[in-house]
């Protein structure tokens, strides 16, 4: 699908799995580089989705980053050790609850 031409310099954790990444690149780019295309399931039908535009417009790359839900992965910069997972459907409140 995609191949990196610059070597990774850190790791992130996606769905509990360690993936190589480069600090500063977007989380979406890091996931694509690792061969991940499914970022979320839609709240409408549960269909699998991945990024379309990578420029903040399409909202199809929504993931959960640390505790925050519905984050646009294309606008989240990678920091070493960043933990993220798929967004399943609508924003929930279990983890977020005040």
């Amino acid at each position: 699908m995609f191949r990196r031409t610059d070597p990774p310099d850190c790791t992130i954790v996606w769905e509990g799995r360690e993936l190589p990444a480069r600090a500063g690149e977007s989380l979406a780019v890091a996931l694509l580089a690792a061969g991940i295309t499914t970022f979320r399931e839609t709240p409408v039908t549960g269909a699998a989705r991945g990024p379309l535009c990578l420029m903040g417009a399409c909202f199809d790359c929504l993931v959960q980053v640390e505790e925050a839900q519905n984050m646009q992965a294309c606008l989240v910069p990678v920091t070493p050790g960043l933990r993220a997972q798929m967004q399943h459907g609508a924003r929930g409140f279990v983890e977020d609850a005040a």
């Binding site: 709240p43 409408v44 519905n70 459907g89 609508a90 924003r91 929930g92 409140f93």
Partner: peptide, 11 residues
């Protein structure tokens, strides 16, 4: 005026 949020789990 009205506000609508993104879809949310039942709350």
């Amino acid at each position: 005026q009205n506000i609508v949020t993104e879809r949310l789990a039942p709350i």
